[in-house]
């Protein structure tokens, strides 16, 4: 049936080069280039080889950023992941020290992480009224508790056999760490799924208006459960690569990782209120933060001072859209007058 008034509605998207250049992701690319120039300016040691050597610890955190971005898009959060990393790493080290084959170690890390994520997911999908922040705060304390009991009085475990972990911490051409490539593959998968699939679109729908999504037939609870579980699995993966760098685990392993992951995603333009942002932004912002940390680390800046700088940057980043909107409005008003 055709419209009675014969009114037509345009359906071809406008492509605007100006808009693409002015989007937040483009800003981040500029910032990334700027940070690299800045790094070389402040330290003669800021070279590709050094940066790549310093990177693996931070790259491991990026594994958390990917599913964390999904959770933020869903309008949710998981602050237990740092503890999940700790528990996974601990268990992986313990299993490794029993002399088990390395594949079993890998599976242990992933299984423990998945189990933790699944637990969060089950609690939150069975009792849908509970706030994710509080539930995952509870499981965070719990997971760390289990890890500490497992670690015993010493509070740490060291790898007795580092062979397997050394294999995964290798470098292509002695330069680029394997973890970089693994991360790249996951980053592409996560980005494409969010941007191009019905699952991704559903996540935006849930994050923007969970009720409307449910009424439209989106399996809200199933998708939430999946994302929380994947969050756990990725925490297991993070734990593996982190262990390959640290050769052990202790009670502080993974401390604050959840906040780093959230910061990377939010800095990348993924709103914590849900339904907004693209993963590409989170990935670029992750590299911006990593390069800044490496650069400041190379000039031996006090780590606490680095944290303060990162904190300020994050607040500026979330303030920027507000400020620019206000400037836009002021400009419009001025033009009218």
């Amino acid at each position: 049936m055709a419209g009675k008034s014969g009114r037509t509605i345009a359906h071809v998207p406008e492509k605007s080069v100006k808009k693409t250049l002015l989007c937040w992701e483009s800003m981040l690319v500029v910032l990334f280039i700027f940070i690299n120039i800045f790094g070389q300016g402040i330290s003669p040691n800021y070279q590709a080889s050094n940066v790549l050597r310093e990177m693996p610890r931070y790259l491991a955190e990026m594994f958390l950023m990917l599913p964390m971005a999904y959770l933020l898009v869903l309008g949710e959060i998981d602050i237990s992941v740092g503890a999940t990393v700790c528990l996974s790493a601990t268990m992986a080290c313990m299993v490794c020290n029993t002399g088990a084959p390395f594949i079993v170690v890998i599976l242990t890390a992933l299984a423990v992480g998945t189990a933790c994520g699944l637990l969060n997911g089950i609690i939150l999908t069975k009792f849908t009224e509970l706030p994710p922040m509080i539930v995952t705060l509870g499981t965070q304390i719990m997971f760390r508790g289990i890890a500490e009991i497992t670690l015993g009085s010493g509070g740490s475990v060291s790898l007795q056999n580092t062979e397997g972990f050394r294999a995964i911490s290798g470098r292509v051409g002695g330069l680029i760490p394997y973890v970089f490539f693994v991360l790249l593959i996951f980053a592409v998968i996560f980005t494409v799924v969010l941007a191009k699939t019905t699952f991704g679109r559903s996540m935006y729908a849930i994050g923007t208006n969970r009720q409307a999504a449910y009424y439209s037939g989106v399996p809200v609870q199933k998708y939430r459960l999946i994302v929380y579980t994947v969050m756990g699995t990725m925490a297991g993966l993070c734990a593996l690569f982190l262990t390959a760098y640290l050769y052990g685990a202790n009670t502080t392993t993974g401390n604050g990782f959840e906040m780093d992951a959230i910061a990377m995603a939010v800095f990348g333009g993924i709103a914590s209120t849900g339904g907004k942002g693209r993963l590409i932004g989170g990935i670029i912002s992750g590299f911006v933060i990593i390069c800044l940390r490496v650069a400041l680390g190379l000039i031996n800046m006090n780590p606490q001072l680095i944290l303060i700088i990162l904190g300020i940057l994050l607040i500026l980043a979330v303030m920027l859209p507000n400020v620019s909107a206000q400037i836009g409005q002021m400009r419009k008003k001025a033009m009218k007058k």
Partner: peptide, 20 residues
């Protein structure tokens, strides 16, 4: 999807300029 949305919105005579 854009094509379908356009057709459906026109079929109920929605007062809108674009589907965006």
């Amino acid at each position: 999807e854009r094509g379908v949305a356009k057709d459906l919105l026109e079929s109920v005579d929605t007062k809108a300029v674009t589907i965006f």
